[in-house]
Amino acid sequence: MNVSKEIMEKWGGETLIIHLDKDTQSIILIAIHSSQIGPAAGGLRMKKYKNLEDAITDVLNLSQAMTSKFAMANMKWGGGKTVVYLTRDLDNTERELFLMRFGDILKSLQGRYYVGPDVGTSSEDMDIIYHTGKPYVFSRTVKAGGAGSSSVPTAYGVYAGIKTTCKFLFGTERLEGRTIFIQGLGNVGQILLKILLKENAHVIFTDTNTELVDRILNQEEKVQFLPPEKSYDVACDIFAPCAHGAILNPNTISRLKCKGIVGAANNQLSEPEDAERLKLRGILYAPDYVVNLGGAMGITAIEAEGASEEESIEKVQKTISETLEKIFINSKSDDTNTIEAAVKIAQQRLEKYFSNTIEI
């Protein structure tokens, strides 16, 4: 893929690093979207892609979303992201050595970018990176002195988003009797499921991992499983995408039978126009980069500000609830979709900081 000046200008960020790891033939992509307010921060995603173009598109979009996420939370961090385009599976030794080499690259950036776990990586991986990349690593294991997984604050942030969305839709944030469909039971989805069951919500879920599905059905009597291919046809109050991105497109949006969408997945819209399509269908969309900011906010509150886990979760829920409420109110009063309302708020908060300087 030719990374042209046009692509970089459309992205609106600062720096894109493309590095070939010769030992594994994996390609490391580090996107720093903004470091004007503060250092850029964002997770390390390791996965296979169809091609390099898809990997570059992913890292650019994800880093841009991180800038919006921090802006919505009034946090003095900029957006960044790392994507590792894996060309093959790595054994344990190869993986460890690869992460150590990535730590060297991270260290060379001298604090412009901080990393944490994302899809395909864990707190244990952050422990390894820390050896060569310290101190620019978030979310190490508790044993190693970090805050551990970001899944808990992320899930509680989604929970707060669901309550706020229900309050706007139905006049009450009580979830008892509400039907909530969770698409994807990864770490965040599983925690969210347990939280919602405690609220006596009617929870329906789907996942492609059959062993996980069987385990959940054996553990939780009150949940209902739905085959993945029926995800967009289920009647529910809230649809919670907690797996892959780009799942909301003209085809799936036309099939939806929900009142609102609130989920942890990144980049849920396949294209910006999908926000307007949801509005025209009368479906209230909670912008994903607001709903899922709990991980970034919770971990930085603990590791950078010295907050306890309880204090960080309280801060996450308050911030997400207040931000979504403002987005929903502005969207209604201005007759715009919720993404437009969110972008306007983020731009106002970034205006005095953000520079259009671009490095290629």
Rank of each mutant, 00 (worst) to 15 (best):
T165K: 06
C166A: 15
C166M: 15
C166F: 07
K167Q: 15
K167M: 08
F168V: 09
F168E: 14
F168N: 11
F170R: 11
G171P: 10
G171Y: 02
E173C: 00
E173F: 10
I180H: 06
I180N: 02
I182F: 05
Q183A: 03
L185I: 10
G189N: 02
G189Y: 04
G189R: 04
Q190L: 06
I195T: 01
I195R: 03
L197A: 00
A201M: 06
H202N: 01
F205T: 08
F205A: 05
D207S: 04
D207W: 01
E211Q: 15
L212Y: 10
L212Q: 10
D214G: 08
D214M: 07
N218V: 03
N218G: 13
N218D: 13
Q219F: 09
E220V: 12
E220W: 09
K222W: 04
K222Q: 15
K222P: 12
K222N: 14
V223T: 04
F225S: 03
L226K: 13
P227W: 10
P227H: 04
P228G: 06
K230Q: 13
D233P: 00
A235N: 05
A235R: 05
C236R: 01
F239P: 03
A240G: 04
P241K: 03
A243V: 01
A243T: 02
A243I: 00
H244P: 04
G245Q: 02
A246M: 11
A246T: 14
I247A: 01
N251L: 15
N251I: 14
N251T: 13
N251F: 13
I253Q: 12
I253V: 15
S254W: 12
L256M: 12
L256D: 00
K257Y: 06
C258I: 15
G260N: 02
I261G: 01
V262R: 08
V262H: 09
V262A: 11
A264H: 07
A265E: 03
N266R: 09
N267S: 09
N267Y: 02
E271F: 15
P272C: 08
P272H: 05
D274G: 15
D274M: 15
E276D: 12
R277C: 12
K279Q: 14
L280P: 08
R281I: 10
Y285L: 08
P287D: 06
D288Y: 01
V291E: 02
